[in-house]
Simulated scan of single mutants.
Amino acid sequence: MWTDRLVSGVRALPDGRPAWCAGAVVIAGRGPVVAAEAAAGWAVRYRAYDPVADRGVDLPRDLWERMRVGTVFDLASLTKLFTALATLQQAECGRLALDEEVRSRLPAFAPGITVRQLLTHTSGLRPELPLYERRGRAAQLELLWDQAAAPDGRPGSGHRYSDLNLIALQLLLEQCTGQRLDVLVREGITGPLGMRSTSFGPLAPQGVAATEDQRRPWAKADRGMVRGEVHDENAWALGGVAGHAGLFSTAQDLAVLCRTLLNGGAYGAARILRPATVAALLEPPGLGFAVDQPYFMGELAGRGAAGHTGFTGTSLVLDRVTDTFLVLLANTVPPRRRDGGSAPRAAAATCLARAASRRR
Rank of each mutant, 00 (worst) to 15 (best):
residue 223 R to Q: 09
residue 213 D to S: 13
residue 220 K to V: 11
residue 230 V to P: 00
residue 230 V to Q: 01
residue 241 V to L: 08
residue 209 A to M: 06
residue 238 L to H: 01
residue 244 H to W: 09
residue 242 A to R: 08
residue 223 R to K: 14
residue 219 A to L: 04
residue 248 F to L: 06
residue 241 V to H: 04
residue 216 R to E: 14
residue 233 E to N: 12
residue 222 D to Y: 09
residue 241 V to I: 15
residue 212 E to D: 12
residue 238 L to M: 13
residue 214 Q to V: 15
residue 246 G to F: 01
residue 235 A to G: 11
residue 244 H to L: 07
residue 244 H to N: 15
residue 219 A to H: 13
residue 214 Q to G: 03
residue 218 W to S: 13
residue 224 G to F: 00
residue 220 K to E: 14
residue 210 A to C: 13
residue 234 N to A: 07
residue 215 R to E: 10
residue 245 A to W: 05
residue 236 W to S: 04
residue 212 E to A: 04
residue 209 A to V: 09
residue 246 G to A: 09
residue 242 A to I: 06
residue 221 A to M: 14
residue 233 E to M: 06
residue 236 W to G: 00
residue 243 G to M: 04
residue 214 Q to P: 01
residue 220 K to R: 15
residue 234 N to K: 08
residue 240 G to E: 13
residue 235 A to M: 11
residue 224 G to Q: 07
residue 242 A to L: 06
residue 211 T to L: 03
residue 240 G to C: 10
residue 243 G to F: 00
residue 248 F to S: 10
residue 224 G to L: 02
residue 228 G to W: 07
residue 219 A to Y: 11
residue 224 G to H: 04
residue 228 G to K: 09
residue 208 V to W: 02
residue 223 R to E: 05
residue 230 V to A: 01
residue 241 V to W: 02
residue 242 A to M: 08
residue 217 P to V: 04
residue 247 L to S: 03
residue 247 L to Q: 02
residue 219 A to P: 02
residue 213 D to T: 10
residue 234 N to W: 11
residue 212 E to T: 02
residue 218 W to F: 14
residue 240 G to Q: 11
residue 213 D to H: 15
residue 243 G to P: 07
residue 216 R to V: 15
residue 222 D to M: 06
residue 212 E to F: 08
residue 246 G to I: 00
residue 223 R to L: 13
residue 210 A to I: 02
residue 230 V to F: 05
residue 243 G to I: 02
residue 242 A to Q: 08
residue 214 Q to W: 13
residue 239 G to I: 03
residue 220 K to L: 12
residue 217 P to R: 13
residue 223 R to W: 12
residue 215 R to Y: 08
residue 212 E to K: 04
residue 238 L to G: 01
residue 219 A to M: 10
residue 210 A to G: 10
residue 240 G to W: 12
residue 222 D to I: 11
residue 237 A to M: 06
residue 218 W to Y: 15
residue 232 D to T: 09
residue 231 H to P: 03
residue 235 A to N: 11
residue 225 M to Q: 07
residue 232 D to N: 05
residue 225 M to G: 01
residue 238 L to A: 05
residue 219 A to S: 15
residue 221 A to R: 12
residue 216 R to W: 03
residue 229 E to Y: 09
residue 211 T to V: 13
residue 237 A to S: 14
residue 222 D to F: 07
residue 226 V to P: 05
residue 220 K to N: 13
residue 232 D to M: 06
residue 209 A to T: 12
residue 234 N to C: 09
residue 210 A to N: 08
residue 238 L to T: 04
residue 224 G to R: 05
residue 231 H to I: 08
residue 212 E to L: 03
residue 233 E to D: 14
residue 214 Q to A: 14
residue 226 V to E: 05
residue 224 G to D: 09
